[in-house]
Design a binder for these strands. Structure first.
Lengths: 326, 326
DNA sequence: TTGTAGGCGTTATCAA
DNA sequence: TTGATAACGCCTACAA
């Protein structure tokens, strides 16, 4: 492993000259710079990240912390994050699990994006107190070193609920996420607001889990309550994954029940998968890529010491065929 | 940021004693160890990863390089990798894109698992030549510092093809992956072997891309060739993603054509998504979790200097409802 | 324009 | 059992 020392010796200059030349400093003659670069190539020189960051106190790496690697949901978000970071000269690494959290305090990463409910807010604040920069996507946290980029859950849930109401549905089921989820709480709150200000609407809340299983369980219960087959059910699943689970359950166990006709479903997220569902799921859409890119941008600003305001990701209603008129 | 120096001063001992104590060396009295630990806690001491790895020349981090973050496919694999690594005292980071490759030569990671066709084999060999340890999941590479953990493509493709033949199909379409894919090549080779040694089978090869689009294009072509509706088509899609794309295309454009009856499809991978397809896709199954775990295990062994043999992941035929008798 | 030298925070080799 | 001290590879005043 060649070091700048080796290059210096070989090129007949001092190590500081090598360092300057390698970093493109104008203090060194073009001539010597070229010579040094040539020697570096010849020696297969590769800088040592540890040594560099020991000195500079930065790694140019950003970490994003996810609850798990299951993915279906994260693809575009990660892509968006990555693209922006690369443009800003940073690298992205994806981490998951409690064990990897040391990377932040030990300065292996220059900052982190958090999308992991299992990460305690207290722990995050501790890190922020120590000067680490964070962007959170899944909670509200006020701290000078923390910025939030949250989905506009209120708008999304309102759009979804109002859509069901406009189509003439009077009894609405809301299938929530797990109890700890911030997004789920916000969505439920918005749903309840809409219901309260609209006359003649009944709301039934079913606790879900943001997974397919949750949608299946909810489907089971809803189908049981509508066993007589007279009234159509209208359901707002707080994410697409559960909506898909619900549609799959219905297709399998109640083939005579048609989504969009006997049961009406709206989701949230507009997963790629939702586009392939039969019928196409009506859902709340937003740009996951933009979400990731914005989070990254905020983090980079935070690291550079700039003041940043919290941001919001806007959502729209994406009409499919899973909701029909009552 | 407290350092061991600060702790030494505060505890009235030398920095080497602190270092030993922090690393649980038996050379230090319990008494002083306790005292040092107490001071460390009091000072909120956090070790500095850069300094440590500058000295130890290791980071205890393993990187896995993927072509993209799209995920659907990788979830379990990453989970399996992660679990094993954590058990062995390593951390896993997920990387993608050319830019992140510096992490290997600059020793930011102790080794890498490669599942990224865009990573040139020559580049990998260069790294291996420099002493870096690698495990490749998507190609064959013989080098003392590189280990392979490959799918048993031959067995899988043979199982799939023979299944179609056993069900009485005589004309078989093979929808391949992109031309650069090692897995695709191996699968195609196996398919051709089966066809050659079985009388009366015709094989049509359609180049795909391992994405849904590839499946759709292939579906279009196959449906056109079977426009008369007389002969049923039998298709082996080289991965589930294409098989799903094919099924979706058919459901959308040829609702009268029933998969498992008028067209017979077998996939490869047994994605979670395949379990939700209608009808359930017949496919080749293998444990993605085990694949990841085995790759990690091999890499850890390689790093520890042990001799390791290349490994293979065994596959089985998972019968669904997408293939029926001719 | 180039060289000297100190230091970043640890580990590890010697002595004591 | 503990303490000096020299690396590890790089950056950066400051000096020449």
């Amino acid at each position: 492993m060649a070091t700048i020392k080796d290059i210096a010796k070989r090129a007949g200059v001092s190590i500081s000259t090598v360092s300057y030349a390698l970093n493109g400093s104008p203090k060194v003659t073009n001539e010597t710079t070229e010579k040094i670069l040539a020697v570096a190539k010849e020696l297969n020189y590769i800088p040592n990240a540890a040594a560099r960051s020991l000195k500079t106190r930065e790694t140019k790496i950003i970490g994003i912390f996810l609850t798990d690697f299951s993915g279906a949901f994260y693809g575009d978000l990660l892509q968006g994050t990555k693209e922006l970071l690369v443009r800003k000269g940073y690298e992205l690494i994806v981490c998951s699990g409690k064990q990897s959290r040391w990377m932040l305090p030990e300065r292996m990463i220059d900052g982190a994006i958090i999308l992991d409910v299992t990460f305690d807010s207290e722990e995050l604040i501790r890190y922020a107190d120590r000067g680490h920069k964070l962007v959170v996507l899944d909670r509200e946290l006020t701290h000078p070193n923390i910025n939030q980029v949250l989905l506009d859950n209120k708008a999304g849930a309102t759009l979804a609920t109002e859509h069901l109401i406009e189509e003439g549905h009077r009894k609405i089921y809301a299938v929530t996420g797990p109890s700890g989820s911030f997004d789920s709480k916000q969505r439920l709150h918005a749903v309840m607001q809409v219901v309260e200000r609209t006359a003649g609407i009944t709301l039934a809340i079913i606790e879900g889990d943001f997974n397919k299983e949750g949608g299946e369980h909810a489907a089971k219960r809803i189908m049981a309550e509508h066993a007589d087959g007279q009234a159509a059910a209208a359901v707002f699943c707080f994410n697409d994954e559960m909506a898909i689970g619900m549609m799959n359950y219905i297709a399998e166990h109640h083939p005579e029940t048609r989504v969009g006709e006997h049961i009406h479903i709206v989701g949230f997220d507009n997963l790629e998968l939702a586009a392939y569902s039969q019928p196409r799921l009506t859902t709340i859409d937003y740009s996951k890529r933009k979400w990731g890119a914005l989070a990254a941008e905020q983090l980079v600003k935070l690291i550079s010491g700039a003041e940043v305001e919290n941001e919001r990701i806007y959502v729209t209603l994406m009409k499919g065929k899973s909701v029909g008129t009552a």
